[in-house]
Amino acid sequence: MGNTQHDNKVGATVIAKIYGVTVKQIDNLRRDGVIKSEGRPARYDLIPTLQALYEYQRRIIKSNGKSDENRRNEAIKLDAEARLKQAKAEMAELELQELQGEMHRAEDVEAITTNIVFAVRSFLLAMPNRLAIDVYNAKSKTQVSEVIKKEIYQILEQLANLDYDKADYKKLVRERKGLREDEDDL
């Protein structure tokens, strides 16, 4: 039995050849405590030494896998943070443009457009009352036509004088955001 145990003991050269590394690397692994040896020159118990080397290799692969995974996760996190910061900066820029009346939300444009539509509606609904006497006093179809045409041109002129007013949009933005008129945040 003593001979069988002695037969399992091998030198660093044999371990290095089996494991596929240099003798110096085997010596370094022994010095680092990864594998154990007995005597001088160093002799290694073959099976436990190879098991220890393969376990060491598994730990390295596993830790490298985690490191790679951690690095990937960190890169994903940094990318997401950068995209979030970029999006926040773009949102802040859009909000500033909106507050300054340079950019308008669809709902604000819709509100202003609705006001214009109601103005047109008012002009048109007022037309019969404003024209009734003149049309009644007209002597011919041509005069009636001229009275109506003149009123339409006046309405069109009033509509043409409706100007884009940044103040109207600013007021809508302030109302939506709950800002007071005297707040000077622009």
Rank of each mutant, 00 (worst) to 15 (best):
D32A: 15
M1P: 10
V14S: 05
N8P: 00
A80M: 10
G33K: 08
G101V: 05
R105N: 06
V147P: 03
H6G: 00
D27N: 14
I15A: 02
A12L: 03
Y56S: 11
E90H: 10
R176V: 04
S37W: 01
L156A: 08
A111H: 09
K62N: 08
N73H: 12
Q5K: 11
V173M: 14
K177T: 03
Y169E: 06
K141Q: 12
D45M: 00
I155A: 08
I112L: 13
T114M: 11
L156M: 10
I112C: 09
R43I: 00
V109M: 14
Q86A: 14
A89Y: 08
V135L: 14
Y19F: 15
R180M: 06
T13P: 01
A92I: 04
A126T: 07
D27G: 03
R121G: 05
E74F: 10
S63W: 02
E102D: 14
V173A: 13
L124S: 08
S122D: 13
E69A: 15
L46S: 01
E74S: 12
I35Q: 03
K170W: 05
E146R: 13
Y56M: 06
E98F: 01
A126L: 09
V23T: 13
I15R: 01
D184A: 09
Q100C: 07
A92G: 05
T49I: 04
A52N: 07
K170T: 12
V21E: 04
Q158V: 09
I18P: 03
A167W: 01
V21D: 02
S63P: 00
E181K: 06
L50W: 03
V34L: 06
V23R: 15
R30Q: 11
G39A: 02
T22N: 15
T4Q: 15
F118V: 05
